[in-house]
């Protein structure tokens, strides 16, 4: 039995958010497998009203935020701000957050942890991922994007498996390195150089902030 519960937000209003949302199918399946109750605010449900309504009623220990963002904000459906620095980051108090979003660990994460968030894992710079423009209508079949999914999903999977935020971060960092090494092999595909560089970009931007 586990005392964990989780909330996931995953807007799907453009190409980038559709990819990130599909990546999270694996996270939802893992939560189901482990018996971790998970509220899924997908697509049009990823609004600030729904987000705060759920947090006011329930007290999930883990929150997985997916979507566009900047240093002060993580956004939901049609880029509506869900959490904003010096506005409502107190809703994250006592929780562990993984924000798959650009830049938000730079300011929002810092402010959230100062205001009681247990841990905030995110990115201090834009999160990048590669896509194959011939496969963008089928995100699940896009092998380029799936490399980045593997490294990112490591965080949420580790947290669902009971790892600490620091351990989840360390495992994701190790996965980034492992993938970079895999794409350094002599039989690596012709796009290996680009994959390695953009994995490096994300690895050095990923941060874990703890109270």
């Amino acid at each position: 039995m586990t005392s964990q519960s989780a909330l996931i937000t995953r807007p799907e209003h453009d190409k980038i958010t559709k990819y990130l949302s599909e990546w999270n199918d694996e996270i939802i399946a893992e939560a189901k497998k482990r018996g971790v109750p998970m509220k899924d605010l997908a697509g049009e449900k990823a609004t600030r009203a729904e987000f705060e309504k759920f947090l006011n009623k329930q007290n999930p220990s883990l929150i997985f935020l997916n979507g566009h963002g900047d240093s002060e904000t993580v956004k939901g459906h049609k880029d509506e701000p869900l959490v904003k620095c010096n506005d409502n980051e107190a809703v994250l108090k006592h929780k562990v957050i993984y924000a798959l979003s650009c830049d938000s660990a730079a300011k929002l994460g810092v402010s959230a942890v100062e205001k009681g968030t247990k841990a905030y894992i995110g990115y201090t710079e834009p999160f990048s991922f590669l896509t194959n423009k011939n496969k963008e209508c089928r995100p699940k079949d896009d092998e380029l994007a799936n490399v980045f999914k593997e490294a990112s999903n490591q965080v949420s999977l580790a947290l669902l498996r009971g790892k600490s935020p620091q351990e989840a971060y360390d495992l994701s960092q190790m996965k980034f390195k492992e993938l970079m090494q895999k794409f350094s092999a002599s039989n690596a595909p012709p796009d290996a150089e680009e994959i390695r560089f953009w994995l490096f970009w994300d690895m050095q931007a990923q941060a874990v902030l703890t109270s």
């Binding site: 980038i16 999160f127 423009k133 150089e193």
Partner: peptide
């Protein structure tokens, strides 16, 4: 280095777009 990048690759970078 960029000249060798395959044409089919798109880089998705949040606010910088694709």
């Amino acid at each position: 280095r960029l000249e060798t990048m395959p044409e089919y690759i798109q880089i998705n970078l949040g606010s910088f777009g694709t």
